[in-house]
Design a binder for these strands. Structure first.
Lengths: 239, 239
DNA sequence: GAAAAATCTTAAAAATTTCTGAAGAAGTAG
DNA sequence: CTACTTCTTCAGAAATTTTTAAGATTTTTC
């Protein structure tokens, strides 16, 4: 594991995981050029080690690696945290597997890749996640009238009373309240929360969770003041 | 299926659907050359799968394909989303040409095609849709005297008062107000909002919706100050 | 001014979307 | 293994929207 510059708070930090040092170095140059911090790891185990001790904003994971490969690593990381993961795969055939497995990566790039394309994807993911409120800078407590969400404690209170949220409920609630006022289509909610392609029945799944959330945050769930439906479009948290 | 995936804000993403990999690859090269992202699918079913999970800005669809052909795929896609579709077909299938455009495709190219022509059509469609306000870029609030449309919140206010719009009403209103001053024929409104071929009775449908919109934004719906009729031509939003 | 054409209006039928409760599946902790 | 929680699916109900239909009104044309 090699550290490149200290942990800067202003700048975002990318973890590059590949057993080939040359590739890591090449990627680093481009990321640094964009003002991003870079930390290296040469396999999945080391990557998880790094994640324990550092604040990482995005992970670039090679699939073919010794010890713990990129796919398994993605699984393990996903269980623990909500962080953008970009997979690197050697050949286009591998991408079939990635897609079929639906392992929860946010994006992937085939090797050999165009550095500019990789950078574009990195920036795109970083932008996307910033609005999600998963980063340090956005770890502030979110308040909306009686509702308070504390991302660090992973706790929600309604009028001061703590309320228990299941994992899925929490993720949906977090997405909506950190983007209060914005409408999300059901498909977008499903993709951003589940990180899986949207099925025909997924909208019903989302609807059931929305109902559960309403039971917990609304005085009258049938006439919600917060979590409103926008007919034919999706849901939004009323500001 | 091979993917070059991701939500690009800078770059737009084109889905190329053809069962012939060589053709897909050839098209990809030209599209990439224009700075466009490309995703492949080898038939209509796969295309729809991809659309569920990705942000796509334009679709190039071959007509002759296994499983779900281009025409059926166009129907299904049109039902769900507002996205430019360009159909590809062999020269002999000229009859399909008319059919293709009527079912909701935006343009049509015969094989073998001149790549430059295809690119020109792709860019033309992207330009057209960008100005239509269907993409992320058009997230700005639109104001017109007392009327304010906020696309992010999907909310309309009249003199500060929020007004509820149904999906169809909203789409028509959005089209007219984002192009205030321009006249739209009823047929054009129908095609751009419904994405379906215009029927005999469609003008009545549009008229009913126009009435509903007027009730919501006009002080005196019988003497509209905003949504005006241009006799024998269509409707326009008065600037 | 009368006929033709285009637009407007209202209400009810049809279609679509969302909501809900319950049951079973899947996953976790003891 | 059992008890417990959480997630997904289903089917029907409820709510909302869209379309249709049948005139009524307005504008244009001759």
């Amino acid at each position: 594991m090699r550290l490149t510059r200290g942990d800067f708070v202003e700048s975002q930090c990318v973890l590059v995981v590949d057993d080939d040092k040359e590739i890591r170095d090449a990627i680093e140059i481009y990321l640094r050029n964009e003002g991003l911090q870079v930390i290296h790891a040469h396999d999945g185990l080391e990557a998880i080690e790094v994640l324990r001790g550092h604040t990482i904003h995005l992970i670039i994971l090679d699939i073919m690696m010794p010890n713990l490969d990129g796919i398994k690593a993605t699984f393990q990381i996903r269980k623990k945290m909500n962080i953008p993961i970009i997979l690197l795969s050697a050949k286009s055939e591998d991408t079939d597997k990635i897609l079929g497995l639906q392992i929860g990566a946010d994006d992937y790039v085939t090797k050999p890749f165009n550095p500019l394309e990789l950078i574009a994807r990195v920036k795109s993911q970083l932008r996307r996640y910033v609005t999600l409120g998963t980063f340090e800078g956005n770890d502030k407590v979110v308040k909306l009238r009686e509702l308070v969400l504390d991302p660090v404690a992973r706790e929600v209170t309604v009028s001061g009373e703590p309320v228990h949220f299941t994992p899925m409920e929490y993720k949906i609630f977090e997405l909506l309240i950190t983007n209060a006022g914005r409408v999300f289509s059901i498909q977008e909610i499903y993709e951003r929360v589940w990180k899986e392609p949207y099925y025909d029945t997924s909208d019903n799944t989302v609807a059931v969770h929305v109902r559960k959330i309403r039971e917990k945050i609304e005085i009258d769930p049938k006439n919600p003041r917060y979590l409103k439906v926008v007919w034919g479009v999706g849901y939004k948290m009323e500001k």
